[in-house]
Design a protein around this nucleic acid. Structure first.
Lengths: 153, 153
DNA sequence: TATTGTTATACTCTATAACTATA
DNA sequence: TATAGTTATAGAGTATAACAATA
């Protein structure tokens, strides 16, 4: 029954069915944002996840990996890799936990705080770049929508 | 200089630095949406990308893989895999292109149109589920923001 | 028994490089 | 030369299962 139609070579490709699909539009936007953020953080030797982990450790000295996993909404197993990378870079140390000998107290080094401060400025600029053209209210709506969707988990 | 502070064990973890980071909030929301969509499409043997590819082939009979890659905003090499899977499932065929012997005219089978129709209904329900709680205007703002960010590429 | 950090593994998404057959 | 489809590969994100040490 599938007739081998001729190709619409120069013709426009219709994406009508996908324009209504908000999840797909979000994916495409996120891909662009993610690519820009990767380029933004690359000079610092960071990615979105290592940057986010570093931010949480800077602001919560003594944080344990399991707490970090919860805060980042990822599995514990993946956090091991982020902390490995941050530790190899000399930005974070795994200090022994005084309360629980199974756990570690994640501490930020001076170099870690310094790279974070510089990266933070770059990330703020990235955010502003991505949201340029939206009003304050529209950005507020965006944040509200993200929080709402995240709460659907 | 890095003092091994005590762990704030039961204490709240501050994510103040990340609450301002819109890209990160978007990532978290997208992770939740993506997980829900994966569950939604799993019964049909589809994922976001194979569903999207199928939608474009249904609506654009004779589409060539390179056109599909452009429409999906992914590299040609990745499209090969999507088409392989759709073809193995019996939903799409690679018909010879009458104009260019290097190319294929992608055609949808009857089974392909049927599974797409059923999956489309499920995806619409998924979208509604994710956006429930937002006004029509807010969803409009969301779409506008996604289009704007995607245009930053 | 349960939890912490860890290792191993697997699947998906994405991109690049290089190949072939055509153009 | 350039393009279409393909293959191979690599990096990143995510998740699950299982283990040793400790609670």
């Amino acid at each position: 029954m599938a007739r081998p139609d001729a190709i619409a070579d120069g013709a426009e490709v219709s994406d009508a069915a996908l324009r209504d699909f908000v999840g797909y539009q979000m994916k495409r936007a996120f891909n662009v944002l993610q690519a820009d953020l990767t380029r933004t953080l690359e000079p610092f030797g960071l990615r979105m996840l290592t940057y986010s982990a570093l931010a949480l450790i800077v602001q919560n000295p003594g944080l344990r990996p399991s707490q970090l996993a919860t805060a980042l909404a990822v599995e514990r197993a993946n956090v091991v890799v982020y902390v490995d990378q941050l530790e190899e870079a000399g930005w974070v140390i795994r200090a022994p936990s005084p309360e629980d000998r199974r756990a570690y107290a994640l501490q930020c080094t001076l170099a870690g705080r310094r790279v974070y401060a510089r990266a933070e400025a770059a990330v703020k600029a990235h955010d502003a770049r991505m949201l340029h053209g939206l009003t304050r209210d529209e950005v507020g709506t965006l944040r509200k929508a993200f929080a709402l969707i995240e709460g659907r988990a």
